[in-house]
Design a protein around this nucleic acid. Sequence first.
DNA 1: CTGAAAGCGCTTACAG
DNA 2: CTGAAAGCGCTTACAG
Lengths: 346, 346
Amino acid sequence: MEQQEKLTLAAVAREAGVSAPTVSKVINGRDDVSADTRAKVLTVLARTGYKSPLQQRRNVSGRQAVEIVFDSLNSAYAVEVLNGVLEYAAESDIEVLLNVTGKQGASTLTAEQRAQRIIDEGRCGMIVVTSAFGAAHLDAFHRRGIPVVVIDPLNPPPGDVVSVGTTNWAGGKDATSHLLELGHRRIAYIGGPDAAECNQARLHGYMAALRAEGVPVEDQYIISGHFRSEHGANGMKALLQLEQRPTAIFAASDSIALGVLAEARRQKIRVPEDMSLVGFDGTYQAEESVPALTSVTQPLQEMGRAALRFILRQMRGEVLDSRRVELVTRLVVRESTAPPRDYQRG
Amino acid sequence: MEQQEKLTLAAVAREAGVSAPTVSKVINGRDDVSADTRAKVLTVLARTGYKSPLQQRRNVSGRQAVEIVFDSLNSAYAVEVLNGVLEYAAESDIEVLLNVTGKQGASTLTAEQRAQRIIDEGRCGMIVVTSAFGAAHLDAFHRRGIPVVVIDPLNPPPGDVVSVGTTNWAGGKDATSHLLELGHRRIAYIGGPDAAECNQARLHGYMAALRAEGVPVEDQYIISGHFRSEHGANGMKALLQLEQRPTAIFAASDSIALGVLAEARRQKIRVPEDMSLVGFDGTYQAEESVPALTSVTQPLQEMGRAALRFILRQMRGEVLDSRRVELVTRLVVRESTAPPRDYQRG
DNA sequence: CTGAAAGCGCTTACAG
DNA sequence: CTGAAAGCGCTTACAG
């Protein structure tokens, strides 16, 4: 006989060696379950791929749904990540629900309520590209067995949450080395939020490259703030006030770099003749600007695709090799970098 | 007592004077129910607003779902419309499902299949910002009673589909009049697809403004293509080949205008000193470019909001005053327009 | 075609 | 923290 037994909650309970009510509690996120029991049940849930009737119903129409949450869509960065997710979702026949938290951060719901809603609405996974979800939220999802993947988190996520990022440190080092090779010695860094992991990594890559060449790291050349273009324009203004102006700027995002470029134009400073400029992200904006921007390209679409791929793997109960994936960045040299004006080759 | 009885299938059965299994059959579309009985049950279902647990679940978490479909998200235009929809959706506690058809146009499904899926998945309405849905698709939704709103359709939608657009003709006229008032007489138009309604309207607004001033419309100054920046760059190249170069360009989208601007920079043509330039859309790109772009601003977020508002009204069964809504455009003068170089005021 | 009865699968209430 | 027992609401199988 050996017939495939129907996958009910009761079957999961038997498999896990607990009672049906206990499995029910785990699925519904009750907290009157011991950590051990919960873990045991979650393992079986993942392995068997059990779906509640609600979730099964969703599958009658053939598709599962993943929710993706952004702080904001007002950046080429966010849109390209989203495009990657959508592309892979279309290929895998997955629905995508989009949520943008905006400034208010959807703060009316507690982590528990939010997680419960996500389940109630039949979501099979979450991709998070926002700082609005803290450890408490991520934990709430985790406890209910909803796969979560965080993209380039501002803060390091709790240990067991999967995150996708890029080789920020290496990228920062490549950008800076490129400028050093061109002969620059006074190189400024205009970066994002101090607290952001990715900014820290880029900054330290920058410092590592300088130190490797014996170039001192100067505080006056390091300006942090946020990843948007106003910050680039303001940073540029500040740098131009310095007694010893830098001859090159490494901007930690393309948006920042475009702000620098706009301010340079206003002040009649030519790029790259008077000032070299490297961005980070490699969005289409870097290609389309004039001069086209030398930039550390992140595979943004691929990040989105990878995030969804890991969600699907977790849904299938596969064990991931690693909780953290870093995709490689690649320096693309375009028109915004050149040797410094008074540089003597040799 | 008169306590509100819980609305179960059994309650509906009692109300309708039939058994629970019979109601179950009606709900599940079985055909072993007499027409009379079915009608009786359907009446009670409608009056009481009974929802199956699946549907209740959706509503316990409070929310209905609307699907929005784009050709592509690779334009500031699309992203701003989307932001408007998301904003209003958050305020109205509606879920948003996002679909980007991409180049393949999701062509594997027929209109019927697509409509059926949309229903099966519990969607309450559709917002369409794409040319991938023809009259057949729109019709299929309509026949099933799913509200559809089309944003700025390339082709006029079937008579009973609601569409949201802007005053393209007036916008085209305003842009051109602005250039005429500055003293320009040789004004070129770089536009989108010939077939697109919104392009037609902008072009005719341009022509109307010229004619009102007695300026002849010259074919060599009218270039159509698509709304992206490469087209602007190519159009600019072509115009610079002309014996009688124009002194001003009206670009039918900001993306086109940015392409023009990039090409101008490459060819060392100064904007606005050597060439005036007006865009259309008024996205943040117009503000951030250097020089900042004079542009006909469309209330893109408001278009998104309006689209969702009309969906919700239709869902509530309200009768709309009009199947077509046009929001007003507004010319915002920035730095990319000036009198022609050899213009003598007087 | 209809519905009493049995059944299914999940959840709740509560004793230990 | 756990699970036997009772309960809930829908569905199925089948007798009439």
